[in-house]
Design a protein around this nucleic acid. Structure first.
Lengths: 195, 195
DNA sequence: AAAACTACTTGCCCTAAGGCAAGAAATCAA
DNA sequence: TTGATTTCTTGCCTTAGGGCAAGTAGTTTT
């Protein structure tokens, strides 16, 4: 059986057999979002996550002044999820928004729990996914401390080039921890000098 | 049965029964570290984690110039762990070091895996722990973007006051993302003004 | 085809924090 | 107990990036 690329990419794991993958896939349901749609809003309890087949998504939180800070971009074949709300069963402080039209495969909390109990390798897969997420997050914190804004920009360009094409400058700026004016200058400088 | 406080604190979870806790505790073994000891060194494969009964520990990574950056402090009743190495089975890029003499309860990878397979609630506990870790990490990244150095200092003082007593200024400074001269000035200013 | 947004750039000036270096104070080593 | 090595503070100057505001382009809306 042929699955969408996001399913095979996301659930690729030695402990997950073809039969497992079929059960897992069956637990998902196709959903769409339009550019600008909020997939999750602060205060809500998250009840599902989404495998992103097409599109670009961002997560953002609000600081004290109500200004929104983009905390992450989610690209094709990645998982759109708010771990804290979904697994700790508490209202989220984050918002998740589609930055372009998106095609997703959704799986609800109940269905997920069921797989978690039933499929041996699924638990293992989950732990691996969490470990990777934790690692990525740590590297981001490190980068905020040790790299210049320009280097953080270049790193983002290396890792998620789509973001620079699709997301508006202000979201990229807040993600990188600079103002939009600064990012505008950084971008100019990068374009001028050796690239 | 009475367990060390770090064991009861760390493994407190609705899915873990008294009987479970006993099995879990039995899988641990007491170990000590002296001030300055490296508990884990970059390049090594982590094969255990440690429940910290007494003492203070830091994790640090090296930046390109070889300067070490403290990435976290671990206090009493918390887990000393390098998730990426332990669960992804890859050599670590982080170092973990005792900042004071430490008493720990260690559990090896094999014993952990065994509990993971045998005890129902242990898996759930693990997912909860990871979710919390992820949340804490995200908040740290956010704080690096939105808070001033002074506010980050005050937040650390609120959350882990022991750190300010035990860790040398340079480690605290690199953790907060400032130079030690800057932290020295921040500290002075905080002491002078309203606290 | 105006009007009204939103996205982006640029200029002017300002500020938080860094770089460097000297020195005091505390801790460790022999 | 006397060096030697860290740890911490402080001064002087520099710099990356912020605040604000004006202005140009695009895009939507009507």
């Amino acid at each position: 059986m042929i699955y969408p690329s996001c399913i095979t990419e996301i659930y690729a794991h030695p402990g997950i057999s073809d039969a497992d993958l079929e059960s897992i896939f069956r637990a998902h349901e196709k959903v769409f979002f339009h550019k600008g749609d909020l997939i999750l809003t602060e205060g809500q309890l998250s009840n599902a996550y989404y495998c992103l087949e097409k599109g670009l998504v961002r997560a953002f939180a609000r600081n004290i002044d109500g200004k929104d800070i983009t905390t992450g971009f989610i690209s094709k074949n990645e998982i759109v999820i708010e771990v804290a709300s979904l697994f700790l069963r508490q209202p989220t402080k984050e918002n998740i928004q589609a930055l372009s039209d998106c095609d997703c495969w959704m799986i609800g909390y109940e269905a997920f729990q069921e797989l978690f109990e039933r499929i041996e390798g699924f638990t293992e897969w989950g732990r691996t996914w969490m470990s990777r997420a934790l690692l990525a997050n740590k590297q981001r914190s490190l980068s905020m401390i040790t790299d210049s804004a320009t280097n953080r920009y270049l790193r983002l360009r290396g890792e998620q080039p789509e973001v620079l094409q699709v997301a508006p400058l202000k979201h990229i700026a807040s993600y990188l921890g600079v103002t939009d004016s600064s990012l505008s200058r950084i971008r100019k400088e990068v374009a001028q000098t050796g690239r």
